[in-house]
Design a protein around this nucleic acid. Structure first.
Lengths: 154, 154
DNA sequence: ATTGCGGATGCAATAACATTGCATAAATGA
DNA sequence: TCATTTATGCAATGTTATTGCATCCGCAAT
């Protein structure tokens, strides 16, 4: 998320533009894998060692309520956030919990379920579950090596 | 989940069939809305007041690892479980956090993303976000009442 | 029915995750 | 620069989840 966007967002909502807000949103947008609050806190402390964990919690909650970022559901309980709010999908690794974004325009044409659900639906996203490349690779450890020997690099 | 299934599952995995396991799985299958651990603990204590919270945690984790039940991702941090592991989708209320199941065979034909994702995909489910009937109804509170006056029952 | 084994349970302690109250500090607009 | 308003940091507290260990219970062999 470019600096300019962060400024605009704060001004639009009459929120003081603080260094903490800049740096937290910045850190979030640099993380493609839906970090937890503590992941972000670690990142942010590199540049601002005195920032408080509470502040990170608060900033994320504030912007999530504004719809600027999103809190994503993840089976490993611990809040996770993402900076993208436009439609996209998720790849979830059942082994390590890694969650990556997936963009695929052909998935934009899902027929929304009818009103009989009782829900007024605004958007959707698909969660694909499986094994990420890191976790599926070591799945055949007994295989004899051929010439394209496996990189076991975790 | 019928009693017989619970027995079968335990025998298949050589797990002692305890009263606690029976009652926790039973309680989960009676809850259509993806309860938290404490939701289930409350339910279960009606019939078994001395059951420990820790035990409920452990039973759910055990069976989730076996694939008998599933831990679902939910933006409100607190683990939630569901007893259905066959493909189905979710309706999530952004207001109250309620999450309901949606079955719709026409959503079974999603084209899986290719191997270029690096993921080996096993299954997917769609999360539809919006407002549930309870939360979308009071959304126009300034409206003059007509003959179909609103039930304000939260 | 009794016994013995291994795993499950309950409890208490602890850890991990999250929120709140309040004093201080910083951003904004005049 | 000053006043106002809100954010931040800190410490305390609350909530959610896990762990170690003594005891209990399901289960199978007797």
């Amino acid at each position: 998320m470019p600096e300019a966007d962060i400024e605009r967002i704060c001004r639009q909502h009459s929120l003081p533009l603080t260094a903490q807000r800049r740096i937290v949103l910045q850190a979030l947008s640099l993380r493609p894998t839906h970090p937890t609050v503590d992941d972000l806190w670690s990142d942010v402390r590199q540049a601002m060692p005195e920032i408080s964990r509470t502040t990170v919690y608060r900033i994320l909650e504030t912007f999530a309520h504004l719809g600027v970022i999103r809190k994503v559901g993840h089976p490993d309980s611990a809040a996770r956030y993402e900076s993208r709010t436009s439609r996209h999908h998720h790849l979830l690794c059942l082994q390590c919990g890694r969650m990556e974004d997936l963009d695929d325009a052909s998935l934009d044409t899902i027929r929304l379920p009818g009103l009989k659900t009782g829900f007024q639906i605004e958007d959707y996203s698909i969660q694909f579950r499986g094994l990420c490349s890191r976790c599926s690779a070591p799945a055949k450890p007994r295989l004899k090596r051929r010439k394209t020997a496996g990189r076991t690099k975790a």
